[in-house]
Every structure is written in C-alpha cells, then in structure tokens.
Design a protein around this nucleic acid. Structure first.
Length: 473
DNA sequence: TTTTGAGTTGTTCGA
DNA sequence: GTCGAACAACTCAAA
C-alpha cells in the first residue's frame, strides 16, 4: 500500500526522516510529492530569486529520484485538495512530512492533518527542521528560552545526533504521476547555481576541509569567502541541519572558540530563531517586545528607495544592497550593517527592510530573517537599542579595510584611495576629479548625516518606551 | 521569594 | 593611535 512523502523545505533523499519512514511503511511504494501552492507563490514575501532557485532544485531532485527509478510528482493547487485526491485515488495509507515553524504553515498543516483523519489516512509530522526540536529546549520552569547563551548551553546538552539516514529504496511511481512537469516562473535576474545534492555535499566538504578552522575570524569579512555559502541549500533542505552539525562536531578542537565551535553556534542560532517563531508567533507581525511597536517611524519613501537601490552615499551600505539585488545573497556582516542603517540612520520601520530581504534572498527564511531584523532594530529578544547603532564608516574600515568589497559592487569607487573609500565625500575636490569619482555626480552624496540620525534614533526609541500604556493605547 | 550575574556581532569620549 | 569606561537601564535564567 503506497504512502506519500510531502516534500516542502526538505528537498533531499538522504538523511530525511519523513521520507525514510514513508518508504519504510509503504515498502518502497512512496509517492514523492511537491505541491506548488499559488497562494505561496504569489505572496509579496516570495521573490523571483527564491522561486527560480526552487524551480531548479525541483528539477535536480527529480533527476535524483529518477536515478532510483522513481520521480517527483509536482502538483499545482491547494495542498489539502491535492493530497485528499491522491490519497483516495491510490489508496494511500499514510502521509509524512517535516514540521514547519511558520504560523501559516502550521495552520495549513493542521488543516491537512484534520482532512486526513476524516478520510482515515494517518499523517505523521517529523521534527527535523532544526537540529534539536523546538519544543525540546526549555528552561527548568518549562518555558522557552528568549536569551541565546543559556539556550545554547541547554541546546548542547540536548544535542544527540545519530548516524545520518541513508537514501531509501523506492519503487517506481505510477507513470502518470512522475511526468517531470516543473514550474516555469518568470526568470529571476540572478544566476542560479548548481542545486544538486552532490554540489551541496561538495560545498560542505570543501568548507570542512579548507575553511572551517578559520571561520571564526574570516566569517566577518564580506570580501572573503569565509562562510560556508550553504544558506540556500540549508533553506531548501538539500542538506539537513543535522548533517552540518555532525561536520561541526567532527571538527571541534580543544580551543574554546574554534572555527567549528563558532560555526556550531551559528547553527544553534538558526535553531534559536526557529523556536522563537514557533513559541512566539506574534513576531511575524510585530516586535518581540510589544513596547517597541510604539516607535513612530518616519518612514521616508525616498530614503527607503535609495537604500533598496544602493544609492545612499555610504559605500559599505550601497555595496551590500547591490550585492543583494545582483546575487540574491548578502554577507552576514553586511546584513547587520544595512539593517542598522535602515532603522537607525534612515528611521524606516524594520518590517520594510525585512520584506525587501525576503523578496530578494534565495536563502530567505521567515524565522532567521525576522530574528536578524529584530536584533538589528533592537525590538527583539535582545533589545539593546542604545548599544547597537552601527557606524557605517567604522564598520567599513574594520571589516573591509582595503575596500575590496565596496569596489567590487560600486565600480564608480574603484579608484578612490583606501583612505577615503568608506567616506568618499571627504575627498578634496581635486582628488575627486583625479580618480574619476565626483561625489554628487558619479556617486551619491550621503543622503543623511550619520551622527545627526543617530541622535534622532535614540530619541525615537526613548519616546516609544516612555509611551504609556504600551501598544494598546 | 529574592538576589545575582549576565546579555553575539558597538560606539564614543577622554585620558 | 590605543585604552578603558560610559552609554541607560531592563529582562532573563538560575541559584
């Protein structure tokens, strides 16, 4: 009797518990299903880049299934209707999938689960999105953690990784179901890389054997490939987070802050924000601390447009925003810098930036993106607005001292001397002409004054906290 | 129940 | 140029 494995963001065959169980129960007779839900595809939070990446991955996943004598069934429409029809048509006994943390995903999954119960089909959700399940890391009082460091300590004690699950044995899918029909979404502006499982493994192995030991230092420099570059593969589950954690553990050294340890803690940050979204779904709409919903953001559309297009006049910010738009990815250090700049310098609501990131990032994930933005905006689990106003000049000097990153994405600054690369408006006029970069002509003059805006930001936050009562006035 | 120590990734000022 | 302290004051987690 066949079963269904409902692929969502676990687009791999190896180390996939839900697929493994579906294959086990169905004696190999698994219908590998992906549902293209028009509501999700048309959402304002999903951009062409991520869809293009997904479309590519569906094809490579199909090829990987095909090599096993199976194939991917891609269906278009409402998941509940599609799964019900398939169950009835093929006498399916159970449906397996990986649990998601996003509030709308949970509502959808609950509805599908109820439908299945009504037609006497078993549904099984697997907690494999995170390395340690969201419900499993709790304080002594049984409440979820909201501070990372104690969370991480407990998380480490719960870390219990068995061996990776093998690729299951699969029987052929009825031919009319595995037709190789893939979505043809409008082409994205960015180049889509090799999305195969093999490529993901190559990247992971390369990182583990060449760069993981230097990760703690190198990860901070946007011009250097110090990070693993795996975020999109993790986002779509081409690799499991557990597989990454196994690699990190295998490379731990006795140093307290080894590259592998720092990378493991980054994986734990991913888990941390997933469980924040799971336990506190209101963060998807507003501030983790509701008092900060009182901030009276000026939200100047003109400033926001300059930020989106990389025309703020602050080189490190502009380089980062152009990297996002041109490649669908942005270095983590740069994400913090532009998020701080949008909220603390341009005084624009962090949700505007959060949405723009979701529209462009191939690795865009609600939990991580929201957590990062709220951290930068000072509205999140670690609200310290007074300590967290990045200075775009000193960040540039610290983390892109020779300006390699800036010069790459802002070619009009290519010949600006190092001394001025993060503040080109301070060049003497004669020098501007000499290097072919007249500020205000070849490159924008700064659209705001950082030290002035810093003062405004502090006042905005102070006013918000002083507002009483909070939120529901 | 109360107390205590600490909180991813910073910046600025003055010595 | 480098260093340490102040920033402003709150909440969490655990003892």
């Amino acid at each position: 009797m066949p079963t269904i494995h409902w692929f969502r963001r676990d687009l791999r065959l190896a180390d996939n518990q839900a697929l493994h169980m579906a294959a086990h129960e169905g004696d190999g007779q698994v219908i590998p299903l992906f549902v293209v839900d028009p509501i999700l595809v048309q959402s304002a939070r999903v951009g062409a880049n991520r869809l293009a990446w997904l479309a590519q991955r569906l094809q490579t996943l199909h090829a990987e299934l095909h090599a096993l004598g199976s194939g991917l069934h891609v269906a278009y429409g409402d998941p509940e209707t599609i799964i019900q029809k398939l169950c009835q048509q093929y006498a399916v006994t159970s449906v397996h999938w990986q649990r998601d943390t996003a509030p709308w995903a949970q509502r959808r999954d609950t509805a599908v689960g109820l439908m299945l119960r009504n037609i006497n089909v078993r549904s099984v959700m697997h907690d494999t999105l995170t390395i340690v399940p969201a419900q499993q890391v709790l304080t002594d009082k049984g409440t979820p953690y909201t501070v990372f460091t104690p969370y991480y300590r407990r998380w480490r004690t719960q870390l219990n990784l068995g061996d990776a699950l093998p690729v299951p044995t699969l029987a052929p899918v009825p031919t009319q179901l595995a037709t190789g029909q893939f979505p043809s979404w409008s082409a994205s502006a960015i180049p889509i890389p090799d999305t195969s499982r093999q490529q993901a493994l190559n990247l992971l192995n390369h990182f583990a054997s060449n760069r993981i030991n230097d990760y703690a230092e190198q990860r901070n420099y946007p011009a250097v490939s110090g990070s693993a570059q795996l975020s999109a593969y993790l986002r779509f589950g081409v690799l499991s987070a557990q597989e990454c954690a196994r690699v990190a553990l295998a490379h731990l050294t006795h140093e307290p802050k080894s590259g592998a340890e720092v990378w493991l803690s980054q994986l734990a940050w991913r888990d941390f924000y997933q469980q924040i979204l799971f336990h506190f779904p209101h963060v998807a709409q507003g501030a983790f601390r509701p008092i900060y919903d009182n901030i009276a953001w000026p939200n100047d559309e003109r400033l926001f447009a300059a930020w989106c297009t990389g025309q703020t006049g602050y080189p490190i910010v502009d380089a980062a925003m152009r990297q996002l738009v041109q490649t669908g990815w942005m270095h983590n250090r740069a994400r913090m810098i532009v998020a701080s700049f949008l909220t603390k310098d341009l005084l624009v609501d962090w949700r505007w930036g959060e949405r723009f990131f979701m529209q462009h990032l191939v690795d865009g994930d609600t939990a991580a993106n929201n957590g990062g933005w709220q951290w930068a905006a000072g509205t999140g689990t670690d609200a310290q607005p007074y300590f967290r106003i990045f200075n775009p000049m000193s960040q540039g000097e610290k983390f892109d001292s020779d300006g390699a990153y800036v010069r790459h994405y802002c070619p009009e600054l290519a010949n600006v001397p190092h001394k001025y690369i993060h503040a080109p408006w301070t060049m003497p006029p004669l020098l501007m002409h000499e290097v072919g970069c007249v500020v205000g002509h070849d490159y924008p003059a700064p659209i705001v004054d950082h030290s002035v805006q810093r003062g405004h930001a502090l006042q905005l936050y102070k006013d918000a906290v002083a507002t009483d009562p909070p939120h529901d006035a």
